[in-house]
């Protein structure tokens, strides 16, 4: 393993330190934690419902890169691929509560759900009103009452943008939670990997793929997917993922938003080529794309791969997605 790091145990605090020091006008670190909170003047001026997200590190710029006016109020970074602890989440909640309550945006992993739940219990003891929405956009995993259910992946960035913009516009906590849940229900993502990520503490890639193989349906923590196949042209990959995703939508009329997301080790060049193919295929299928975004938004360390997110969107959501925002990475 070759990585530009110091001690493996110091990765997260050093990363957060680098992030806040190079973006001091936007964010600051909450003392004694690896959580960051808004530091722009508008944060104090315009009171709103607090929006807190977080999760394991290794998905940068998620979540700290989305802290700022119009998106998240605070973000809590756990160890690499490991949910943050309840005490840190609790600190973030108390740092952003402005009397209107706090919405927690949690990705659907056992660890995240349990730790955010414990933090919620702690904050409720302080009489802070808390609601939680759980993102589960990864359709490569079956949803069933008898499993953990679908994972939260790249669609999380869209949820944070829409809910963040709505919170800035003054929406109350209950409505934000309802909006967030509705958005989540309309987001579908599927990802592929060309090369697995190397978790620093592990030191080698999470799984091995042949020189011409890709894995379909991977998660953002090296979770293996549903099939290993030979790599095909971008066009065919796009068509395959689109077909899988569109099956999930009963109604293909109206506005849609897309996100082509790089997994961390895949250059923008390939992402744009893939996005071009996605737009071609959606146009052929008469699906109306009203918002699109391309980039490394929700990564998995140095994983090489890409994910496609498609969201069926209300006109309002498209407006929230397009609103300018002042964050490190949106």
């Amino acid at each position: 393993m070759k990585k530009i790091i110091n001690n493996v145990e110091d990765i997260v605090p050093e990363m957060i330190s680098g992030l806040v020091r190079t973006n001091a006008d936007l964010v600051k670190q909450i003392d004694g934690t690896t959580a960051v909170v808004r530091n722009d003047p508008k944060f104090k001026e315009n009171k709103q419902v607090g929006i807190v997200s977080g999760g394991g590190s290794g998905h940068e710029p998620l979540h700290a890169g989305y802290v700022g006016d119009g998106m998240l109020s605070a973000a809590v970074a756990g160890e690499v691929f490991t949910s943050p602890t309840p005490d840190q989440i609790y600190e973030a909640i108390t740092a952003v509560d402005q009397g209107q309550g706090v919405l927690l945006i949690v990705k659907n992993y056992s660890g995240d759900v349990m730790n955010f739940d414990m933090a919620k219990e702690m904050a409720e003891a302080d009489d802070i009103e808390i609601k939680t929405i759980v993102v589960d956009d990864d359709i490569s995993v079956k949803n069933s009452e008898f499993t953990q259910g679908k994972r939260g992946v790249a669609g999380t960035a869209l949820v944070e943008k829409i809910v963040g913009a709505a919170a800035r516009s003054g929406m109350n906590l209950a409505d934000l939670a309802t909006l967030g849940q509705k958005v989540i229900d309309n987001i579908k993502t599927i990802g592929i990997a060309l090369h697995a990520a190397t978790v620093p503490a592990v030191g080698h890639p999470g799984f091995e793929l042949g020189d011409d193989e890709i894995e379909y349906g991977i998660g953002i923590h090296n979770e293996r997917g549903y099939a290993v196949e030979k790599i095909r042209p971008a066009k065919e990959l796009a068509n395959e993922l689109i077909e899988k995703i569109l099956k999930e939508f009963s109604d293909q009329s109206g506005d849609f938003a897309i996100l082509v997301n790089g997994m961390g080790g895949t250059p923008l060049m390939e992402q744009y080529i893939f996005a071009n193919d996605v737009l071609n295929e959606l146009a052929a299928k008469k699906v109306k794309v009203s918002f699109s975004k391309v980039g490394n938004l929700v990564t998995s360390l140095d994983m090489q791969g890409i994910s496609l997110t498609i969201m069926k969107a209300d006109a309002d959501w498209i407006k929230y997605l397009k609103e300018p925002v002042t964050t490190i990475a949106w």
């Binding site: 949910s83 602890t85 660890g111």
Partner: peptide, 14 residues
């Protein structure tokens, strides 16, 4: 455990 482990196992053992 609760404060240092994180992940799923932290709240569980905790």
């Amino acid at each position: 455990m609760i404060q240092k482990v994180g992940g799923a196992s932290g709240p569980l053992y905790g």
